[in-house]
């Protein structure tokens, strides 16, 4: 599903964020990406979101080389990816419902379909009764769950998360991780960048480790 092939990213100014990174992830696989701040975790996720283009090497998604996608094809590609951010990136002037509906609206779903899917997604994260509230009225954990609902409402094949539990206490963190597990179980490929080592060590899943832009451990085979 995801295949990094000798991918490097060098930023203008010479900083090498990723150095010859190669790994593969199967469909329906869940893995963690660890490493210190600045080790390249965010850059790697940005590659998968096409927020950055590699300097060299290839990134294949479902057999398709992302280097061959033109800029105008980026939005269409992003519709098959769901992203959860550490700072959740919710729009504070819109209701929970409208926030979650956004990925469906931009893809041109009819409103009846949007209502059905948004409620299903909110139900999945246990926030159905809060759909008409503004995100500001929710707790940190609830906000993160709204972010997750938004990331999965359009049934993406790939779910990415950048420090999704960064601001949450351990109990809420394991709740969030359990949510991700559920999406993995229905066939979504899940990749989570985190440095919450204690949490992920308990989960018995593949852990990839980045150090100064190099993949020192790709954890392949672990927990499979």
């Amino acid at each position: 599903m995801i295949c990094f092939d000798n991918l490097s990213k060098r930023y203008p100014g010479g900083f090498e964020a990723l150095k010859n990174v190669s790994f593969e992830m199967d469909a329906g696989e869940m893995a963690f990406l660890t490493g210190h701040s600045g080790a390249g975790k965010s850059t790697l996720l940005k590659m998968l979101m096409l927020m950055e283009r590699p300097t060299s090497g290839n990134l294949l998604i479902n057999g398709k080389n992302l280097n061959r996608l033109s800029n105008s094809q980026i939005p269409i590609y992003r519709r098959q990816v769901g992203v959860v951010f550490q700072n959740h990136q919710l729009l504070l002037d819109r209701t929970v419902f409208d926030n979650v509906a956004l990925p469906l609206q931009v893809s041109g779903y009819p409103s009846s379909e949007i209502g059905r899917r948004v409620r299903a997604a909110l139900d999945g994260v246990g926030l159905l009764e809060k759909e008409q509230q503004k995100p500001i009225a929710l707790s940190g954990g609830e906000q993160q769950r709204v972010g997750i609902a938004r990331a999965v409402v359009h049934k993406p094949r790939i779910l990415l998360a950048d420090e999704p539990t960064g601001n949450l206490d351990p109990e809420l963190s394991s709740e969030i991780m359990a949510l991700f597990r559920r999406f993995q179980n229905v066939g979504v490929t899940v990749l989570i960048a985190t440095h919450d080592i204690t949490l992920i060590n308990r989960m018995q899943l593949r852990i990839m480790h980045l150090e100064e832009g190099e993949l020192t451990d790709d954890g392949a085979g672990y927990g499979r």
Partner: peptide
């Protein structure tokens, strides 16, 4: 600005 970035991240086209 924030709204535009989020819309682009979830696959909104430039036209949208």
């Amino acid at each position: 600005r924030d709204e535009i970035i989020v819309i682009k991240l979830v696959g909104g086209t430039n036209a949208y």
